[in-house]
Design a protein around this nucleic acid. Structure first.
Length: 523
RNA sequence: GGCUCGGUAGCUCAGCUGGUUAGAGCGUGGGAUUCAUAACCCCAAGGUCGGGAGUUCAAGUCUCCCCCGAGCCA
């Protein structure tokens, strides 16, 4: 059982932004979920470091391209560490071993007869690293996306014969589940139906790139080389570079998670390259949406960029993860709204989930000698909260499996809401005043404590930190979702059994597991 | 210009193959309560389901036209 998933390899043109953080957090939740369910996960992320744009950015900063890439990629690595991203690999395309992978891959593609020489003529946007098909203006065309002047190119390049794969790609793209969410499939299908054209895979006079073997003066086009990073990432430290070996250690990838803007590269060009090289295709390409902020696009010109480092420092991992995963439909565009952000975090995490445990633990400690009360009938599988917990877990599993984080989060939240309601209905604080009712009170408290344990468990892939704190308050070991499982069923799966909380267990002093977010002023 | 995806309560969204009084969360207003992180629980407020026409016994849910937003291709 092996599950490989990837984030895009982030282009090191600039420091990490919220978009890449969003993608990476989502992948992290998926990776953790898969591990908890027994999969041996290889979670890949990394940086894409070649190309003219990088070279110029480095130049402008007075650095060599390598020094620039070292610095930026380090920021990514550092940021992911601080977010506690559980990636297994961090690949860099300037790594010498990646060069070897690219060379071997190219040799296969060339052997398939898919590399030809061609003349590339047209307007080029350095920021996109793409030729623009047909800019209207004749004199000084601009890139519509970057609003920067296009550069005229006329050079002899190597081309990949994408056109030969027309039928195979058409079939692939039409396949249920290959492109997700399904709403994005049409767009790609239309593009493919328009006829695939060979695309250039090399550049001349671009020193910051991987030299094309047998073609002096040519370096590989960034995208050709960057996509292959997914393969390089599978190499183990010190392992000799051999493409064939990767087939036994994680390839094909189960899932590429990307932003919707690069869907075409992943769903069309990449599979064709793999077909040409005789390698298996990834199972799913998921193109998620973009984040806006208070209804506006984030951008330097607007000065409204939300910095992930600042967000982390001021709000913490749990809050941001919860908001992004629980409130923004994964796949669609989403809007970051600060008011809603703090409302949701405070309501869901602090008030509903945190306070549930806090109030129950307090009562148990006060009336049952600081310990988990005797379970009695509450340990039975037909207890209303047992049924609720089971139903929530099922819904959670189903939703996570199809990347519907919102539904998954919602199911956990509903479980906690139900438990709060249960407490109010049974009012143990009232009952406690009547003699002879302790047994019943104990059962009710046990049921809610047990429910809280389930909440803590289910939260593990989404909010590993909060999950640990929740479990700690229940004297339970934290759940490790960052390393691959050794046993089957996994400890997590084993823990998801109603009644596993031991009566008599000493409860630690209640401490709020989630601080309310008090943001004065905009982030 | 062609195509794709959206337009449902103040906000973010659910509403499967058409069928009882259109739902949830947040926000707002009221009530109840004291175990708890001024938390929790209950109740309410009514949105011509973007607009128009059509199909049907019946349409938010299908068809056509139009308007608005986002995007892809030209």
């Amino acid at each position: 059982m092996s599950y490989t998933l990837t984030t895009p390899l982030y282009y090191v043109n600039d420091r990490p932004h919220l978009g890449s953080t969003y993608t990476t957090l989502a992948c992290d939740a998926i990776a953790r979920f898969q591990r908890l369910n027994g999969q041996a996960v290889t979670f890949i992320t990394g940086c894409d470091e070649h190309g003219l744009k990088i070279m110029r950015t480095a130049e402008a900063a007075g650095l060599t391209p390598q020094a620039h890439c070292d610095a930026i990629s380090e920021r990514y690595r550092d940021l992911w560490n601080r977010w506690q991203i559980s990636n297994d690999r961090f690949v860099r395309t300037s790594d010498p071993r990646h060069h070897q992978v690219v060379e071997q891959f190219f040799a296969r593609v060339e052997a398939s007869g898919d590399v030809i020489e061609g003349r590339q003529q047209g307007w080029y946007c350095v920021a996109c690293e793409e030729f623009k098909d047909d800019p209207h203006e004749s004199d000084d065309p601009e890139c519509a996306i970057h609003r920067r002047p296009l550069e005229w190119r006329d050079e002899v390049n190597l081309f990949f014969r994408l056109s030969r794969y027309q039928q195979q790609i058409e079939a692939l793209v039409a396949q249920e589940g290959f492109i997700a969410p399904a709403s994005r499939r049409r767009e790609v299908q239309n593009f493919v139906a328009g006829g695939l054209k060979d695309f250039s895979i090399s550049r001349v006079d671009l020193p910051w790139g991987i030299p094309v073997p047998g073609h002096p003066g040519h370096t590989f086009y960034v995208w050709f080389d960057a996509l292959l990073g997914y393969l390089s990432a599978l190499l183990k430290p010190g392992q000799p570079v051999e493409l064939e070996a990767l087939l036994h250690q994680g390839w094909p990838a189960q899932l590429h998670v990307i932003g919707k803007d690069i869907l075409r590269f992943h769903a069309v060009f990449w599979p064709a390259m793999l077909l040409s090289a005789g390698l298996e295709l990834p199972r799913t390409v998921f193109g998620h949406g973009f984040l806006t902020r208070e209804g506006q696009k984030m951008g330097k010109s607007l000065g409204n960029v939300l910095d992930p480092e600042l967000l982390l420092d001021r709000c913490g991992r749990d809050a941001v993860r919860w908001y992004l995963l629980r409130d923004i439909p994964f796949g669609d565009d989403g809007d970051f709204q600060q008011q809603r952000f703090s409302d949701l975090v405070n309501n869901d995490l602090a008030n509903t989930i945190g306070n549930l445990l806090n109030r129950t633990s307090s009562m148990a400690r006060k009336w049952f000698e600081g310990a988990v009360p005797p379970a009695g009938a509450a340990a039975l599988a037909d207890h209303p909260l047992a049924l609720a917990a089971l139903a929530a877990a099922e819904r959670f599993q189903q939703a996570m499996a199809i990347l519907e984080f919102r539904t998954a989060a919602e199911s956990v939240l509903q479980l906690a809401i139900g438990a709060n309601g249960f407490l109010n209905d049974n009012a143990p604080w009232k009952r406690m005043k009547t003699t002879g009712e302790e047994g019943r009170v104990g059962e009710d408290l046990y049921a809610v404590l047990e429910t809280s344990r389930w909440v803590g468990l289910l939260l593990a892939p989404l909010l590993p930190d909060l999950s640990s704190r929740l479990l700690e308050q229940l004297a339970q070991a934290p759940i490790d979702s960052s390393s691959n499982p050794l046993a089957s069923p996994t400890p997590w799966q084993q823990a998801l059994r109603w009644g596993a909380l031991s009566p008599g267990l000493t409860l630690p002093e209640p401490m709020p597991v989630m601080q309310r977010l008090e943001l004065d002023g905009p982030l």
